[in-house]
Amino acid sequence: MKNILKNTLAGALATLIAGSALAADINLLNVSYDPTRELYREYNAAFSKYWQAETGQSVNVRQSHGGSGSQARAVIDGLDADVVTLALAYDVDALRQHADLIPENWQSRLANNSSPYTSTIVLLVRKGNPKNIKDWDDLVRDDVEVITPNPKTSGGARWNYLAAWGYALKQNGGDEEKAYEFVRKLFANVPVLDPGARGATNTFVQRGLGDVFIAWENEAYLSVEQLGKGEFEIVVPSVSILAEPPVTVVDKNVDRKGTREVAEAYLQYLYSEEAQRIAARNYYRPSNPEIAREFADKFVDVELFRIDDVFGGWEKAQNDHFNDGGKFDSILESLTKR
């Protein structure tokens, strides 16, 4: 047993050394969530060019994509990220809560709550909108089936849930009881709760279940583009939530690796005009209003509310709604009892 461990370690060490022969001057690792692959593929090339021109150094940015929550977990357990670009502030904040990798004020270090691009929650319906779905109200109709992943396990699904809740609050003058009832009725229309966003997309698109799919705007566009042009339509509701996927340097890692300067520049450059256009081309809403105007035809104007304003921030929203014994648990319980 001892022998095998020794052998394994020796072999592993050898490959480690052989594997770390670097081609570029600087290597960065960007740990991100699932749907940003195309965005960062394009952005990394742009940033490398920019940095080379600026400093003469070549930068190679490596990518890791996965579910936002599990990606945060991996960084906490030692995945050597220089920067994280995750789906929600709650996941980024876990790096501080569980491992002290970033300072408390991380979200105020960059403009716009450290979110260089934003998104929102929209409704994806089948071609021709056969059930005539226009707004959140239609999702609680008896004849409509809704597809959304499980907010317990999916970051994206929490945005969906909070968007619906925020809409109901607005309609009912801030009445929490009525909002609860609205969201309860919505979830009564959900035939399957997939654990993740991509699974839910497959349920709606491949398996053909449901009449409406609640999705991130960028995901919805991607589904329309990649999974069948003309088979789906995007319906933008009257009110939705401003989804802010934040970015941050992982201080402990960049200080150890000596990559702070380039890592910070990497995130700063996300706010440049070039990067903002890249974000817009990949269906993320640019935070720069001028660039946003250039792409006005792509992003429908919609009244957006912030999670901080309506729910008092992610931590509170998480506690009130999604933790064990929260409001979502009570909704599920009441639905299974029926």
Binding site: I4, T8, A12, L13, T15, L16, G19, D77, G78, L79
Partner: peptide, 16 residues
Amino acid sequence: DLRIIFAVPGIVIVIA
């Protein structure tokens, strides 16, 4: 400065 998890050695170890 040794990396096992989230690197090739970790993969080798779990597969072994």
